[in-house]
């Protein structure tokens, strides 16, 4: 069952001679529960794709359907609510709010939604993220890996339809990178969470169910993968 449908997506920056086609007629679908890796060289359009899927940027043309709903037919307010409820964004530089502690950062989207966070769910998530003893710490008091785990917690906490991760390990050492990927994989398997991960790291890509390769704003390959084999390897 397809959760996400991207149809003839185009994103053009600039005009005339300065025109840059960041995404050029991109179409694909993502079924629920799939862990998808998007790879490609710098400037190939990966991050632009992720931002458009996350409702952060608007496409020049084309549609993005999440659960059959056209994301960009919504006004700005509904788009913000869409980001709050239906997607979870993970960035390379974490983008945590420095004045909020780990727990507050994780629950922020839900608090903004006017809902009261479920304490048990929060405790479980913190345990999963191995942040139980760091829940009251400010971002400045956490290591890079811990900050990224907070960022993942924030993305997971509202149980969104899709998690979008932009180079989630780009700012981490290999040990922390492995832990973060394992965490993402675990939540993908345990919660059947759909994930799209943008990465340069081939090892990370190989741990995903599917790999889409981008070049010059176009899909150049779309292959299914058996992550178990990679893990074993």
């Amino acid at each position: 069952m397809e959760l996400l449908k991207i149809d003839h997506l185009c994103k053009i920056y600039g005009k005339g001679e300065n025109e840059v086609r960041a995404l050029d007629d991109v179409s694909f679908t993502v079924p629920k529960g799939q862990m998808l890796a998007v790879i490609g060289p710098s400037g190939s359009g990966k991050s632009t794709l992720l931002h458009i899927l996350g409702g952060v940027d608007r496409p020049t043309s084309g549609t993005v359907l999440l659960d059959g709903q056209d994301v960009y037919k919504q006004n700005n307010k509904n788009l913000a609510i869409f980001r709050r409820r239906q997607v979870g964004l993970i960035y390379q530089f974490y983008n945590l709010i420095p004045v909020l502690n780990a727990e507050e950062n994780i629950t922020l989207p839900m608090i903004m939604d006017g809902r009261k966070p479920d304490q048990k769910q929060l405790d479980d998530l913190l345990k999963l993220l191995e942040l139980s003893d760091r829940r009251k710490h400010l971002p400045s008091q956490l290591s890079g890996g811990q900050q990224q785990r907070v960022s993942i917690g924030r993305a997971l906490f509202t149980s969104p339809g899709v998690i979008l991760a932009d180079e989630p390990t780009g700012n981490l050492d290999s040990k922390n990178s492995a832990e973060i990927i394992a965490l993402l994989r675990k939540s993908n398997r345990e919660f059947n969470q759909t994930m799209i991960i943008i990465t340069h790291d081939e090892n990370i890509a190989l741990q995903c169910d599917r790999i889409i390769s981008f070049s010059d704003g176009k899909i150049v390959s779309d292959t299914m993968n058996t992550p178990a084999a990679a893990e074993e390897a």
Partner: peptide, 16 residues
């Protein structure tokens, strides 16, 4: 700027 954008990315509306 970036921090406020982060909040908007995780669902903060213009009104908020």
């Amino acid at each position: 700027k970036s921090e406020l954008a982060s909040m908007q990315c995780v669902g903060m509306t213009d009104g908020q």
